[in-house]
Design a protein around this nucleic acid. Sequence first.
DNA 1: CGTACCATTGAACCGTTTCAACCGGGGTGG
DNA 2: CCACCCCGGTTGAAACGGTTCAATGGTACG
Lengths: 278, 278
Amino acid sequence: MIPSGSSAGDAAIRGDHPCFGCPVRDRALCGALRCDELAAFRRTGIARRLAEGDALCMEGTPAAQVYNLKKGVLRLSKLLRDGRRHVIGFAFPGDFVGVTTEEEHPFTIEATCDAEICQFPRGRFTAFVAGHPRFERRLFAAAARDLAVAREQILVLGRKTAIERLATFLLDMTRRTRQVPGEPARAELPMPRGDIADYLGVRNETISRELGVLKSRRLIRMIRTHEVTIIDRAAMERLAAGDDTPTIRPDRFRARTALIRRPPSPLQAIKADAASEN
Amino acid sequence: MIPSGSSAGDAAIRGDHPCFGCPVRDRALCGALRCDELAAFRRTGIARRLAEGDALCMEGTPAAQVYNLKKGVLRLSKLLRDGRRHVIGFAFPGDFVGVTTEEEHPFTIEATCDAEICQFPRGRFTAFVAGHPRFERRLFAAAARDLAVAREQILVLGRKTAIERLATFLLDMTRRTRQVPGEPARAELPMPRGDIADYLGVRNETISRELGVLKSRRLIRMIRTHEVTIIDRAAMERLAAGDDTPTIRPDRFRARTALIRRPPSPLQAIKADAASEN
DNA sequence: CGTACCATTGAACCGTTTCAACCGGGGTGG
DNA sequence: CCACCCCGGTTGAAACGGTTCAATGGTACG
């Protein structure tokens, strides 16, 4: 709806630029800034390194900072009062996290492995955003993307079986993993099984078991504990989309609650929709 | 983070204004517009009435229109390929729906009961937004709220039990229902049980059963099929927050996957977080 | 006054969890 | 240097929560 601002950072960054050598300089929001703007922005924050397990912020604490991930993978999670944890999502290099309109962080952010970030005081970040509409548009576009992703995950958690969730996740992870052209798709899984389980709303034993099933069905191959390759991508896509041909009970997966009460809608809607785009 | 623009529509709308008598004139995005701006905006779209079950748009079809709900409740849903349905959310008066950065509608939007909407061609809507920063800010704020809601729902679907999901939903619905001060909280449920079930990721039989449990536990009272009152709000809040005292097996709900690897973080983070806000 | 549809209730079944044992690699200390 | 331990991952067996299938009740509507 709102076009993301075109990249403005064509000029090469020189050695004295604070973002010199930054792996995400062109990615994400930073890419929307001119060289000098970027430098000014960068100087409002500081760089930090995180070890595996370090927490950036805790759910419920004041949201005083926002973070830009340069390297590694972060885990965003929420807790129920009795200790049940759910992983809302993972953040990858280039992602901004901790950006919220609330006063408190809505979730805990931790490193699943060694990571590097830039960290900006919220007030200065907000002020900078307000002064740079192109940056603001990108931020909006990122929020819109996050929203679409979150709603897709709602579908995953609300209606997919364990093996379908896992297939969906593995396919997602291939998009986050560097691919070798011509070779079967790889998925690196930098987080422990428990994190994947808490992300997919199942227990880690289930992740192990269903990985085993995918393996025995020849859909994937385990390279290492934290790396798989997709052997039969088409079958994986079908499985993830909820269009599997079940092995055991052929009648189990037929239509459940389809019920679309009335197709697109009578005359009125068709006329209205077709009539005017712009 | 980005403040929502202050309401600009103080001047009363006169009888010749296209929004005269509109129940959501001050709500939502419209409230960000001056009287004349609002009139201009309103004239880019048309009003429509929907009967229960009418579809506004279908998942996967081109997103040609955006809609502003004036009256009634809409249901946003997605389908898996084999027909399993999930309700992503409900829309209430004042909500804008169908706003997306994608080319296609990410979900189907239908009326759960008779409803009234205004409908705007996407192109004109986008153009109007681009020309009215205050409006755009509100849109961003709405997206941020939707994102927070979606992530809360992820927690619900990922980790809560059926009865906890239902308690969460009923409490949410009290916020969307007009309350009588001094009386126990009411929740109107304008949608059928099947919609609630598909929203909470369970079957409608489960909704019936768990409503029965809440009733027998004296937490709620059923007024009619589509209205309940909350008798013990504190207990409901505890239940919804995952802090229930289970009746059957006292040991079942103890901490599960708590494991916060390292508290807030070592020196570095404390210093950094405390040091600078703005 | 039937009929259609939603809601409720019952009983058997199944997918996932729970609990427990075991495996294997990497780091540590004797 | 190697035994030991620790911890994440895997595998097995039993239990449970929610589903599935089926029958019944209730109510709006033609």
